[in-house]
Design a protein around this nucleic acid. Structure first.
Lengths: 215, 215, 215, 215
DNA sequence: AATGAATGAGTTTTCATTCAT
DNA sequence: CATGAATGAAAACTCATTCAT
């Protein structure tokens, strides 16, 4: 069911990333790990080089600046991984027959939890950078708006028409779904590093959301 | 109703903070502002001095290091503002007659939103630091646990016994309340800097929570 | 016998030093102690103020700069204590009847050891500064030359004429006497801080010098 | 005869020091020169960089702190140069046939004077630091004790048994020899920077010591 | 491409000194 | 005179970035 467990390299095989040599991949991996753990600003290029097992010069041979390294992580995340995940997600949703809102909720809660869990590091970096660079949030929001919201709204309206979902503004409904999911993910996943039993959490989540959102 | 709109200086007039000279207060204020806006790491002590209108030496005369400046902001927040707010909040709750769960929800959602809004900067800094220093979250959680949770649980059980609140684990109920509140606060307040119409948001919030949580 | 146990304040009662207030004396004493212990450069005016129990401003009210504080210690030492000690010493020598060279040696070895021991701190500071400011040594040498050497040379010649002292250049003889005394003082006194049993050391010293220097 | 005129680089060609690049050697050389001339505390890393003809960053690329720079100078001196010199010196003494105590004295006085003269800068720095860090003296004393004193004592006893040397404690005899040598070296060499005519000084030195120490 | 020594601008920090109270 | 907050110049140190090898 989870079609999102895509690694960075599986995403766009013909693009920049797979052209990267072993060393460059190590650099990217080391950056991802360190940026997520201690933050972009507290990670020095020396530490990246050390963790990647390369020289400091090598860190800069592919990515000209430290900031490009950050973007090399975040851009595919915002520009490819998230949208692709979103498309896949939406497509999957549409082709999957989910006759009832509860099935729908079950599906998306579980799927999104899995997705975030499998991209924990990127999320942490994204969240941290968002704190300083609100433009990131705007970029993300716009992308998701065009990709998801219209089609998601259609779906929500489908269940509203069926009388299974409260007739609030779909944006408002989305906000609650996202909030409750993040309420589980943020403390357990982004802040600490404990594993998360997705199935159990999903059940709880859906139980609450069904009460709050069914017509 | 909101007894929490206490500024830093109103908190402990006889303690450290009011001993600070005008210039030192300016330093603290400038740091608070810059740390919140661009983050601790991207704020130089030179910029703090410039914004505070003092010399760079002055930045270090009271707070010996830049990191102490951060702690001078966060510690009263974690150690005094939050707990005092929590106590006030709980006491207020207990002395206020809130016969129905909906009154209770209305009260806490509005109060907490107001509180966060009035300490926006501190929250932003706290959230940013939390991303790198998970220990902060643990400190906070422990403090809040001892201060709030037991008494909050009692109150929730009061409404559960009255048959107005679903008989889930009070911790789980708290999580949903917090999640939904943050779902409103984070995007509008912490990430961007737009003003927030608390009354409207509170009403929406409570409406949803009542559906999800009433027995 | 030891006429040199003069404290700073006993030296020039009509001059600056006794005009000093209690606080200023404390400053001077603290400086002396810290300069001797950790060196001039590693002593901050803040530490002087703290040890003296005064404010930092007070450190500068009498002595305009930190360097003047150093000179306030060294100048009386070079300009007054040492010469006065030297005069006293020479006068004492001349008025004291020391018919034999061995008596003479005994006297000066014991007296100089006592003198250095009672001005240990000043000596330490002087030696340390000398390493960086060779001019100090020149100043000292010139002063001692005019004050002592001529008259000391006369005395040495007295014993040479009596056939009790080898007929080397008096300067050379002085050098050996000084070297051997310092050979005892430097390790035990200036470098470490152990007490020194002067009588025992004097006897050893004189025994060796008598062998090396008697005619 | 003087086997001790070893420069820093001749000491351990395969070790740390020769791994240093040209620029790093320049940094070390500049530090040595400035520390000796004006003292560690009065030498700024900027001045070191300027004298070495490198950027200030380079000063810190190899030696992480200014203090490590000091240790990079002193440690090989205490840990390698002195002990090696000591061993060489003792070995040389043992293999050289020195039938009479006067030959022995002549040899060591000349050799030690040459050694100190060829490491003047290191000695100056060492002496200066010793004034503030008495632990240095302890380190040195312990090293020399284990390396030299036992074997030197044996040699002295050899001449005592031959009836050419006074039967004092060898430690006491060493103290006089060292004192008299330093009596020549300190004023002429360490304090000022004038050259020293070793042969002449050696002759005077030995003449006095022979009188004082022969049986 | 990879290396790592070198760079230099920027940052934090120290501290002697000043000055209003 | 005494105080101690304020100053600012200078110091040590960091680190992203460059470049010769």
């Amino acid at each position: 069911m989870d079609n999102l467990e895509t690694t960075i390299n599986q995403i766009s095989p013909e693009k920049a990333i797979t052209q990267l040599s072993k060393k460059q991949q190590a650099v990217l991996k080391a950056s991802l790990s360190l940026f997520a753990k201690v933050g972009y600003d507290r990670t020095s290029t020396y530490e990246i080089a050390k963790l990647a097992g390369v020289s400091e010069g090598t860190v800069f041979s592919q990515f000209k600046t430290k900031n490009q390294l950050l973007h090399a992580i975040l851009e595919p995340f915002i520009g490819e991984i998230l949208p692709m995940a979103a498309s896949d997600f939406i497509n999957q949703l549409q082709t999957t027959s989910l006759p009832h809102f509860e099935d729908f909720l079950n599906y998306i809660v579980h799927d999104r939890m899995s997705f975030v869990m499998s991209h924990r590091s990127e999320f942490k970096i994204f969240v941290q950078e968002m704190g300083r660079n609100p433009q990131l949030l705007i970029m993300l929001t716009e992308r998701l708006n065009t990709l998801i919201n219209r089609r998601l709204s259609e779906m929500l309206r489908f269940y509203q028409d069926k009388g299974e979902l409260i007739t609030w503004d779909p944006m408002r409904i989305s906000r609650y779904i996202v909030s409750v999911i993040l309420g589980y993910l943020l403390p357990n996943t982004l802040m600490s590093d404990e594993p998360l039993v997705i199935e159990q959490q999903t059940r709880e989540c859906v139980e609450f959301l069904m009460r709050g959102l069914s017509a």
